[in-house]
Amino acid sequence: MKADTIGTITPAVLVELRPGEKILAEHEIMLHMDGQVKIARKTMKQLGVSRAHLMGMKARGDTEDAYFFAEFEGPGNVTFSRDKGGEVRVLNLPAGQTVRLRSGHLICFDESVRYNPMVLAQWYIQKGNEREAQYLFADELTGPGTIVFQSVGNILSFNLAATEAVRTSTVGLLMASPSNVVQVGWLGASGVFGGGMVSPVLDVRGPGPIMVHSGV
């Protein structure tokens, strides 16, 4: 696919599809499409995501992943918008390269890209007398092919060496690679008012490239 970003405030993505070329996207983010573009359903099962895996994700409370994607088939142009401000990036994945993108930020991807929803991090928070599980869901995408995604706010990229690590908020991590280790840490405040109050953070270790975004 040939994908270009249009606009700066709330950017849209213009995708040019050749005859027979197919891309997948969430079905509610299409802005416009040419009359000759065909639209169909692609279920998670057709993408190789087992029902048990999907039900497990849903049981954890993941509401971002639908049970299907909308499949757009060329020739023609399609534009997508997530109705949000933020940077749109187009990433070409070589064969075998995998990225883990925070759930809810994927715009579209080539049919050749392998898709798998996953849990990137898990932690617990105390609510009264109960411990409640929290999850960071991600879309695992493996090339070959092109993916398009959007951040909230601006994107900051880091290429971490094996000994390096960055700490980010639980909403700040946008993308990691499988070689990165993502661990949940706890940031505590000290003093009379802060004593005993801790917040979860993500400690991301190298090696591998990561992206964080500036919005929440």
Binding site: G7, G35, T79
Partner: peptide, 20 residues
Amino acid sequence: GNILGFDLKSGEAIDIDHGA
């Protein structure tokens, strides 16, 4: 958001999201 402009020829058609 951003504004996208199109000049449609006679009979030329596109399908759009109704909020767009």
